[in-house]
Design a protein around this nucleic acid. Structure first.
Lengths: 210, 210
DNA sequence: GTTGTTTATTGAACGCTGTTCATATTCCGC
DNA sequence: GCGGAATATGAACAGCGTTCAATAAACAAC
């Protein structure tokens, strides 16, 4: 049945093309420029054809969110260069901030718009992806790093890895998103803020939980 | 010249009414339900009339942001009940989180939408309001509390109040906004997260800057 | 190769949005 | 009462997401 296959391939090809175009539009002109008619124009189909591949605009946005989250995951994984868990957490923090500043529109889309989008990224997808959603995997990176930290330093013996990871992430997200939505509010450069925050947080966790 | 006054009063009355209605709509049905036609309907005027009182929809949203920020300011000022600076910072943090959860839509509008809105809230308004914008005043509350903390505890002698306030705010914002946009991501209840974060941050600041 | 059926695609339409503007109405000083 | 200014309207424009009857294309069967 090569025919059915070919048709299926054509269909997913078109879907991918639409997705790629959508991402290009979002990155270049912002999420508000991402309209059904615009995507249809770009792939040289009629607006209605988009609905053969996506339930609605929201589904496109959600997919872009997932794609973005995969990228964030890659950024975080580059923290592996360091040997010490604490140092790795520092590198991850800086990479997190770098992702936010280099992919502002994506970051906005995933973390600062309606909760439906976030759910698509963090929710354990229906697919039998055993590794979990990109959001879960990213969060797990932090958790396991804090677990490692607990094991390697006696000062952190009482640390709760999940709690610590949530605190860590929330803090990074606070810096990154404040910079995006209230750019002139934070006078201190983001890198400086992140670096000192990492120090403060680790010192604080050690003092409180240790 | 009673007539001109009356007309002016009528004009500002109508503007206020439109603003009040707009706020009601936003709070009850979300920002997306706030449309020009809807506001016009509610105050029983034609859609075009709105543009006699506001330059555009954005101006309405910005005003709602300012109003919301005034409320946040009130929430923060209730931290005055405590005597100790550190304790006051703790109360303020909890009140901040409470504001975000009780005025989710407003919080979203001010801190999680386009930077123009935030600029209206944080930017030193053109008006000769000597006390500064509500955003600046709110931030100043934190700064002065950290200044007080520095003066009252030898442990915090080297603390930079502005830097500390930024870190503090960013962290609170991180928790509040993550809870809003990725509600199921944070497993730990917000109050718990805020309380432990306050401890961690203060301990961390003491350890690093002290 | 022609037919019949299924699938893919279209283009017009609906109801909504913010915004503008010529028109109409209302009000005020004279 | 009259002229001019302020105020208000309602239709219009261009755009949006989305739906759907009508059409075109692709295929299977004969």
């Amino acid at each position: 049945m090569g025919i059915a296959e070919r048709k299926q391939r054509h269909k997913t090809d078109l879907r991918d093309k639409a997705l790629k175009v959508s991402q290009k539009i979002m990155l270049n002109e912002g999420l508000s420029a991402l309209t059904i008619r615009r995507v249809a124009d770009e792939i040289e189909y009629s607006p209605g054809a988009i609905y053969l591949y996506f339930r609605n605009r929201e589904e496109i946005v959600r997919e872009l969110g997932r794609l973005g989250m995969e990228t964030l995951l890659e950024y975080l994984q580059r923290g592996d260069v360091a040997a010490d868990p604490a140092e790795r957490l520092g590198v991850m923090a800086l990479n997190y901030a770098r992702f936010a500043s280099e992919h502002t529109e994506t970051y906005r889309l995933v973390f600062m718009s309606d909760s439906e989008t976030a759910r698509a990224v963090f929710g354990s997808g229906d697919d039998k992806n055993t590794k979990g959603s990109p959001g879960e995997r990213a969060f797990h990176l932090l958790v396991s790093e804090f677990t490692r930290l607990r094991g390697s330093h006696a000062d952190f013996a009482e640390l709760d890895p999940v709690r610590a990871a949530e605190t860590y992430w929330a803090h990074l997200h606070g810096i990154a998103s404040l910079k995006i939505s209230c750019s002139e509010f934070l006078k201190t450069p983001v890198e400086v803020l992140v670096e000192t925050s990492v120090k403060v947080l680790l010192a604080g966790i050690r003092a409180v939980d240790g």
